[in-house]
Structure formats: structure tokens, C-alpha cells
Simulated scan of single mutants.
Amino acid sequence: MIKVRFFASFREKLNCEQLTLQEGEYAPLLSALKSQLADQGEGWREVMMSERTLVAINQTMTRQDVTLRSGDEVAFFPPVTGG
């Protein structure tokens, strides 16, 4: 099982705060999971395929394609701006 969480404007855009996916329901690589989620519709595709989308695995930022393991938390959130 993995948890997939969406933050800030992504949560509103997708109308989804969190997904829980069981073994066999998710692709084993982060890139494949993003493609799998993108297939759910236009808003999902926009969020998942954007180069600006930030991703953290178990609260550690990543830009690499990583292998997902049971118990992982995958978090997607928009770029953070400061001021």
C-alpha cells in the first residue's frame, strides 16, 4: 500500500486530498505512477505532467524516477513562492 497526497492548489484542482493504493493498483516507478494518475483526466494530466510539479517521497524531495515500495507516501504539490 502507498499513500498519494495532494497539497494546496492541486488538492482543489483534483478535488482529492489523498489516495490509498494497494499492491497491484499502482505502478512500481514514480514516472509510471504519474502517467497512471494522468490518465484520470485533463486536470490530472496537467498536474502530473507539469515540469513544475514538486514531488516528495516519504517527506524527501525528489526529481528522480524512483522505485516505490509498500508503505511509501508520495506527495505532489505546486511550486512554492515566497515574498
Rank of each mutant, 00 (worst) to 15 (best):
L37K: 00
S35Y: 11
R5D: 03
E17C: 08
Q36K: 09
L37P: 02
I2D: 00
W44Q: 08
P79A: 09
A32S: 12
A8W: 01
R45K: 11
A27L: 13
E46W: 15
E46N: 10
E46M: 14
E46F: 14
S31V: 10
S35T: 08
S31W: 10
V80D: 01
L54S: 11
L14S: 04
F10E: 04
N15R: 15
L68Q: 06
A8V: 03
P78W: 01
R5W: 03
A75S: 12
Q40L: 08
F10A: 00
I2W: 12
G24M: 04
G43R: 06
A32K: 10
T53Q: 11
A38P: 02
K34A: 05
N15Q: 15
G82R: 07
R45S: 09
K3E: 07
E25V: 14
S70N: 14
K34I: 08
R52D: 06
P78K: 00
V4C: 07
V47L: 06
Q36L: 05
V4N: 02
Q22D: 09
L29I: 05
A8D: 05
Q64T: 11
R5S: 04
V66H: 05
A56K: 05
L33A: 07
I57Y: 02
Y26L: 08
K13N: 06
A38K: 08
Y26K: 09
E51S: 14
A75I: 02
R63L: 07
L30A: 07
Y26A: 08
G24T: 09
T67R: 04
T81P: 00
D39M: 12
P78R: 01
